[in-house]
Structure formats: C-alpha cells, structure tokens
C-alpha cells in the first residue's frame, strides 16, 4: 500500500517537473547555435494595431540587414497592470508603456537601469498622443469642453487611473482645465473633479475596455479617450461618432525602454535596441501616423496635418512637476483619486 502511494506521489511530482522543464524556458531569447531571435514587447492597451503593423515592418528591416530572423511576441493590457506584471516576472525584452511612471515602476523593481529616459531620443518617446472626447454623432448632449462633463445629464466613460495609463492622462488633462478655469483655486478644482467622477458610469481597467463599453455596449454620452483610440473608433464606425477637441488637453508621451535584466539574460540586447531605435525611422513614424499616433518626427507629422488638430492647446507633465510628483499627489494609495472615489 505504502509503496504504491509513494509511487503515485513520485509520478505526479515527475509530471509537474516535466511540465516546468518542458515549457519553462525558451520562450524568449536566442536559441543556441541558431540565427533566430525571439523578443517580447509588453505594451499597453490601445497599441494593438500599431504593433501589428510595426512588427511586420521591423521584421523586414532586421532580416534585410542581418543574417538572422526575429520574431516578436506581444502582450497588451492596462499600462499600470502591465508594468506590475513585468516587475513580477513577465519576461519583457522591451516595454512600450503609456507613460514614464509605469516604466519607472519596472526600473524600481530593479529590471531597468536608471537613465533609460535619455537612452532614446525625445525622452524615449517615439510617438505622442493627447486626450480628446469621443461623442455620439451630432453630439446630442452638446459636450464641447471639460466644463460640460460636470453637468448632471452627462454620463462619462473613462478607465481606472489605478490601472490604466490613458486614464491618468485623462485625469490630469481635466485637472489642467479646472486649474485654468478656477484660477488655481484648489477647492473649486477638487469639487469639479469630484463631480466629474460622479458622472462616470463604467471604470474599466484599460483603455480598450473603456472604448468597448462606449462603442460596443453603448454606455454613456462621452468617452475620454486617447486621440488614437478615438480615431480608431471613428474609422470603424464613421457614421456613429465624432471627436470633440477640448480647449485644453495634455501632451501624452508614451515611453519605451529596454528591460536590461531580461535582454542581458536572453542575449537580445542588440535586437531589442534596434527594435526601439527603428521606431524613430521615417517608415515607423509613418506607421505611427497611420495608426493615429502623433509622429515625433516633425516632417512626418506635417504629412498628417489634415488628420490631427495641430493647434490644440497642450499642457505637459512638467506642468505637474513631473511624473513622480503628479503620481504621488493624484494616483498613489490614499492620493487625490482615492479620496475622491471613496467619497462617492
């Protein structure tokens, strides 16, 4: 009896070990003796279409210049959540997240070396975006600016700033408008932001989830959205929606970085570096523009002058004292967002 018990225990143990060793390694990196690279790009929610197009272009570019092939695995989700997963061991060779602060979370976990912000041009931000309103065709609720979002008859869709990068940009853009509107009177600004969140109907964990709530499930009157995400909805349903550009918004700078610990372990630093570098090439900048991200290359941006509202009035994260300060004040545990949301 005992012997058989032991045998069966050993068997199940062996099975588990087999599962671990069979599948545990080799999903990323360079297989020994072969010319094949495999890298993982952990990105945020709305970049799904962008990186499908870019990965194809990069593959061609790399394979035309090198005697090796490359394959890119994507992962998408709310930016804050994605950063946390990388910090917990999701094996990203590169991260392409919604904002600097989320990349910093990976740096703080000891995976990215300090100084990554200046490793690539323009604060490691190859494309930018901003925050706009997506409303239903004809703008039935006549939503024209941030002030209208505090009206009693307006239902808002925005993701959760705790998990979503886009939602943090939304929050800060609303804050910037209120500061200007109320001459920096913090009490009035807070009251406005509080009213805004009272009007939020669905708080999804990522930008794409919020878009689906608004576009597919027809919730709410206005979606606070990445400009690229709003354009994408417009492209899919040109007759159902329109974009409203508010009087003030924020320059949203998604950040990219190499995950040093992972590339050094996998031997993928060269291909990962080129992967991020090539995002600044004219070809990639054009792909960004076609996917409704604002190219950082001025010439390419000018080509898309009829798509983007280039006269939009934008504040930047520096107006909030940088991400560390903004995050501590607004989004940290017990910060302004928590206080506002608990009161509701």
């Amino acid at each position: 009896m005992k012997k058989n018990l032991l045998k069966a225990f050993a068997l199940s143990g062996a099975l588990l070990t087999a599962a671990v060793s069979l599948t545990g390694c080799g999903s990323s990196g360079k297989a020994a003796g072969s010319n094949h690279y495999s890298i993982v790009n952990v990105s945020y929610d709305p970049t799904r279409e962008l990186y499908v197009a870019y990965n194809e272009a990069f593959k061609k570019h790399w394979e035309s210049e090198h005697d090796s092939t490359v394959e890119i695995t994507q992962s998408h989700g709310g930016s804050g959540k994605q950063a946390l997963e990388v910090a917990n061991g999701n094996p990203a060779d590169v991260v392409t997240l919604a904002l600097e602060y989320d990349v910093k979370a990976v740096e703080d976990a000891g995976l990215i070396e300090p100084g990554w912000l200046s490793e690539f041009p323009l604060d490691s931000s190859p494309y930018t975006s901003t925050i706009v309103f997506l409303v239903r065709k004809g703008n039935p609720k006549n939503i024209l600016d941030w002030g209208d979002l505090a009206r009693d008859d307006v239902g808002i869709i925005t993701p959760n700033p705790k998990t979503s990068g886009g939602a943090r940009w939304n929050h800060l853009a609303a804050w910037a408008w209120a500061q200007r509107e109320y001459n920096n009177d913090e009490t009035q600004v807070l009251a406005y932001i509080k009213k805004l969140y009272e009007n939020v109907l669905v708080l999804d964990s990522g930008a794409r989830g919020a878009t689906n709530s608004f576009v597919e499930n027809k919730q709410g009157d206005v979606l606070l959205a990445w400009e690229n995400e709003a354009f994408l909805s417009l492209k899919e349903y040109p007759d159902d929606y329109e974009i409203v550009t508010p009087s003030i918004s924020i320059l949203a700078q998604p950040s990219v970085a190499i995950v040093d610990k992972v590339v050094d372990k996998n031997g993928t630093r060269e291909v990962a570096t080129e992967y991020l570098n090539y995002l600044y090439s004219e070809e990639a900048q054009r792909i960004a523009g076609q996917n409704f991200y604002r190219p950082s290359n001025e010439q390419v941006l000018a080509e898309f002058g009829d798509v983007f509202d280039l006269s939009i009035n934008l504040v930047t994260i520096n107006d909030f004292g940088g991400w560390d300060e903004a995050f501590a004040k607004h989004f940290a545990d017990g910060g302004l967002f928590d206080q506002i949301y608990e009161q509701n």
């Binding site: 588990l16 599962a19 671990v20 060793s21 069979l22 599948t23 545990g24 390694c25 999903s27 997963e85 917990n88 061991g89 999701n90 094996p91």
Partner: peptide, 13 residues
C-alpha cells in the same frame, strides 16, 4: 535553474 512558473505555461497549469 532557468525555470519560469508565472507568466509561463507551468503557472497556467
């Protein structure tokens, strides 16, 4: 030992 559990197949199992 190059074993990955979370964010890999063994974690899912």
């Amino acid at each position: 030992h190059d074993l990955r559990v979370v964010y890999a197949v063994p974690g899912i199992i």
